[in-house]
Design a protein around this nucleic acid. Sequence first.
DNA 1: TATTGTTATACTCTATAACTATA
DNA 2: TATAGTTATAGAGTATAACAATA
Lengths: 163, 163
Amino acid sequence: MANNAPKAAAARVEDMAAQPSVLESLVGYNLKRVYILMDSDFRRTFEGDDMPPRVFSTLAIISESPGVMQSEVARMLGIERSGLVAIVDGLEKRGLVERKPFPGDRRVHALHPTKAGRETFNRGINAVTAHEDSALSMLSSGERKKLLTLLQKIRAGFLESEK
Amino acid sequence: MANNAPKAAAARVEDMAAQPSVLESLVGYNLKRVYILMDSDFRRTFEGDDMPPRVFSTLAIISESPGVMQSEVARMLGIERSGLVAIVDGLEKRGLVERKPFPGDRRVHALHPTKAGRETFNRGINAVTAHEDSALSMLSSGERKKLLTLLQKIRAGFLESEK
DNA sequence: TATTGTTATACTCTATAACTATA
DNA sequence: TATAGTTATAGAGTATAACAATA
């Protein structure tokens, strides 16, 4: 150690900046931090519309696949059937989706978007895209595409390993 | 529509596969799904060691920056001071870290790793790296580096925009 | 027996606010 | 006045288990 300075009488809080951590080099750690940033930003942007991420995702799937059953939506979103009940309840109360009988299987509730639901989804998808444009403005178009490709590749890899 | 088949009497559940969703093209959605996969995998891998991600992160920062104060650790991890109390309590009970008086400011608890804490961290960082090697084996070395770089760039961008 | 939707329940994670002791 | 650590509390999100209706 080439530190010839006299020993300080007492440390000062201002001097206690910590070392950069090895955590910064871990994909998992950075993934979590970025997820939290993006998720918070999404919620802040759409809180006036009462549209947290998983509610928007549910509306999207129902709008794109009218007649889809709840179990299938839950499976696509990677959540439990039970967790989806409250989300669909909320969307139904707001007049954005409807539960209808499914011809051929009376256990099933087929989920359909209403006209208002389709309109909300169409406005939403534009707003969400604009939100991503803004939140990811530090990335070039190519970098953003690359990021998307890498994330999709990881998901595909996990899917494969579960077989 | 070039569908000349006769109309089915009743739909069948087996035929109700939903459309691929526009969600799949959103960075935020894929980020969340990948975060959940990696986080679950981490917890599963280290549950025998009682070492969820944020406990390991806390131990890492204390091991790398002995004497760091709690507020600084919370700031680095992006969580509230109050949330860190239980984590440090747990690490202290397990004999991995110690709260010591901070010379010069009696409000501060300086956090130090014990010998056992340093050993646990050293074993942990190897295990975590091995975990990432396994969980991200579908990516080439170059892809993994690129992903890390992109995630860090997003974090830096958010940090910049908060100024 | 298995599956769909539902309810009840509990647990994790986190944020907020208020308190104390110090500065 | 402001800050470090702490406690209490509440909320969001999610998972598990059990149930009725139906297959």
